[in-house]
Write a protein that binds this DNA or RNA. Structure first.
Lengths: 139, 139
DNA sequence: TACTTTAATCAGAGAATCTGACTAGAACAA
DNA sequence: TTGTTCTAGTCAGATTCTCTGATTAAAGTA
């Protein structure tokens, strides 16, 4: 079986479950919004960087950040180092979703480790981490 | 780093590259269409099955199959075993894209193997294959 | 200062996706 | 056999996501 599909399936499973857990906990957010939100750094991130990291156009990133802002999950503040730019920052409200997502992720990892074993899980992570070096356009 | 994202990044890299190669070769097809097309079995597959495998609604699958049909990549034939159902089958035209996709996939795998080594590549494949058992709703 | 590049937004359109309602055939129970 | 229920697929309508192209304002540069 094609390794692209082999990667895609568990990748989507993770996305679906984490999103479901976060939504279940009362946070109204979509997958596309989450993908952008996930990339916002601790000190704020520029729209252009978010777009690049999430591999969408600036317009798309802007559209999603607008919604996240309206929902109160991010705020835009001026970038002191560049008058053209603004930094997108996550709000306290969004921070509250982090433990929910982390808990679900931990559950998933535990299930996976249960199924494939601790050794394979470590190997998987190592291989993926290395692949990120050549496949992550942001890294 | 989150294993969901770690899976997502190379998964998308594969999708992007294979789609680009296929489009480059003159096949006009989108990512969403390709995801459905990829799931059509050798003897034809029902719309409902395609929808389930690709994890979209029947309506969405139908919408995409309509487009694939218009473009000549699939055809719908009556299902002899069920008067309500029809089987979606890939046409010869679509079959011609297979070697193009395979060649690009082979290139990607070679690059990856070059970067992470043969052993890790085999371990990766093994781990992913096992994960499919618990994360692929279609399997 | 004038030119070029960059960060972000505006405007408009197209693609992908969904929910809800419907039709026709199949399966099943009385 | 005859209803009743279930299943495969479609129709209608709306929303969400995404893109291309053009514009504005600030920064960098010759």
């Amino acid at each position: 079986m094609n390794i692209g599909l082999l990667l895609f399936i568990p990748s989507r499973a993770v996305e679906n479950r984490i999103l479901a857990a976060v939504v279940e906990a009362g946070f109204e957010i979509t997958q596309a919004q989450a993908r952008v939100l996930m990339r916002v750094g601790p000190d704020g991130t520029r729209l252009t960087e978010l777009a690049e990291a999430a591999q969408v156009t600036k317009q798309t990133a802007g559209f999603l950040v607008d919604q996240l802002e309206k929902a109160g999950y991010v705020e835009r503040v001026p970038d002191p180092s560049d008058g053209r730019a603004r930094l997108v920052r996550v709000t306290d409200k969004a921070q509250e979703a982090v433990p929910v997502a982390d808990a679900e992720m931990a559950r998933i990892e535990a299930e996976w480790e249960q199924h494939i074993g601790k050794r394979r899980m470590a190997q998987l992570r190592e291989a993926l981490d290395m692949l990120g070096e050549i496949t992550d356009p942001y890294r």
